[in-house]
Design a protein around this nucleic acid. Sequence first.
DNA 1: AGGCACTGCGCG
DNA 2: AAAGCGCGCAGTGCCT
Length: 579
Amino acid sequence: MTDPAPLTVRWCVLGRGVDGRVTAVDIQADGSRGAMQTVSFAELSEYVAERERNAAPRWVWSDTPTWYPTLLEAGVRVARCTDLRLSHAILRNAASVQRADELRAAEEWDVAAAVPDPEPRGLALFELERTSTLSVPHGIEKALAEFARQREALATAAEPARLGFLLAAESAGALAAVEMSTAGVPWDIAEHDRLLREALGARPASGMKPQRMVEVAEEVRAALGDPQASLDSPPKLLRALKNAGIEVSSTSQWELAEHSHPALEPLLRYKKLARLFTANGWTWMDEWVRDGRYRPVYVPGGVVTGRWASSGGGALQLPRQLRPVLRADPGWLFVSADVAQLEPRVLAAMSTDHAMAEAGRGKDLYAGVVASGAVATRDEAKIAVLGAMYGATTGDSGRLVPRLRRSFPRAMRLVDESAETGEHGGTVSTWLGRTSPPPGAEWAEVQAVANGVNATSRDEDRARRVARDFGRFTRNFVVQGTAAEWALAWIADLRTRLMDLGEATDTRPATASGVMFERRPHLVFFLHDEIIVHTPAELAEKVAEVVAETAVTAGRRMFGSVPVDFPLDLRISERAEKG
DNA sequence: AGGCACTGCGCG
DNA sequence: AAAGCGCGCAGTGCCT
């Protein structure tokens, strides 16, 4: 009798032992478990690297920011993982999962993202626990039990393959996020300093304002005829403006721009300088740029819709003004790409609205909307399309949206029905199955008051307003969330394709100099619908091809044969300046 | 001193 | 120019 062919190891579950050692348990394709293996913490990287070469299992671990930075520090990348914390968050809420009771009962997995230390200190794998108050469990038995619960829950989903794809993409995103923080964005400190000096003057002493800000502030005070006017406190500034006869109800730029007074031009200029100085000035540079690398902290799944959030470093609000400061290393280049109008394209695909798909056939979907005859100008098209996805009811946007309803009935029906569901307190789901959170207790309270016998018209107005607010949230959730899924599918595929490029000889990161993944192209930046890859110059063309190919693949894997294009604006450059 | 709400502004 | 969605962060002012 011959031995049966050995079963493929599909997963390898990792857990921390009580003694700080790490336990690994293989799980075969048929669900059977292998023997427990234990390695010392020091041996972990070597163990993972060896298994990655020979078996390439999907690593299953409690949460990626806890496990992965240590491996990366040792030069070990993994191709695939299951992040139990992120997967739990998706599965426990997913409407398509029939049996999630046990998952919901496992409350110890309901933990917000652990925030990794942006500067890893040596081999402190579980150092996180000392700084964050809450953490998911890291032990092997807990991990095995949770993984089993998740497999069972997934099997009861209406479309397990689809939801499973979301879990894989979400987990791949978690790997990419840690890799990007570890690698960092190549940052030209001298150029940043030059830009700051040009705008603000020399760097001021700690606690002082830059010379240019002081000067402009004096201009404002002179024009107001108020030498004491405070420009940094909105309430005080508002009083000063009113005293000068400027009738504004707030101090925001858009309202100031509507008035005409000699103080307003320098005031708007002051606000720009103040913003640059406080948000991305020298202090920010000192804190977030080290060794020529900007290392923001990404939080995959940090937004309810599935978008990433960030925690520290402000990666989601990097001003375009600063983009020229991103500079590739000598001999390297950036390949940057963003998707034009990702959200309406996703909406067209989800709703199989062929008219909207047709409008998106070219590079500019808004031009296509104009060509469809729905509206007259590109500006109108943009305002109308955004208004449709956000639920605008007033102004130009509210006026233009009904025109889209005639030209793109299927797309509009999808967002309108999503809004209606939310107005009634319901939940909606993205294309791959991420379900929106139900409204909070306050929602039901307000509705109950409005439906009570003693309800005033005020109560009813409030209830309607709260219902519509929630409707706008669910309306946008399906589109924003599905767009986030498309982007995750894109970068998940992209990072694995990039792993295969470049020299395989030495992947050991030299983090002291900020150089990661020597001679290998790697993602350094991701922001909702755009990516930047840092690559050896000789591979840039190849990388650009891969970036484009993976965008096509993402569309196919998400939406199959639905004929919706996701065209990229793609650039190869030394600096990440937006073209 | 530290927590919290609020405003204002950067990003998609 | 916002409107209509989703965020993070700095600064201020008020609270304990």
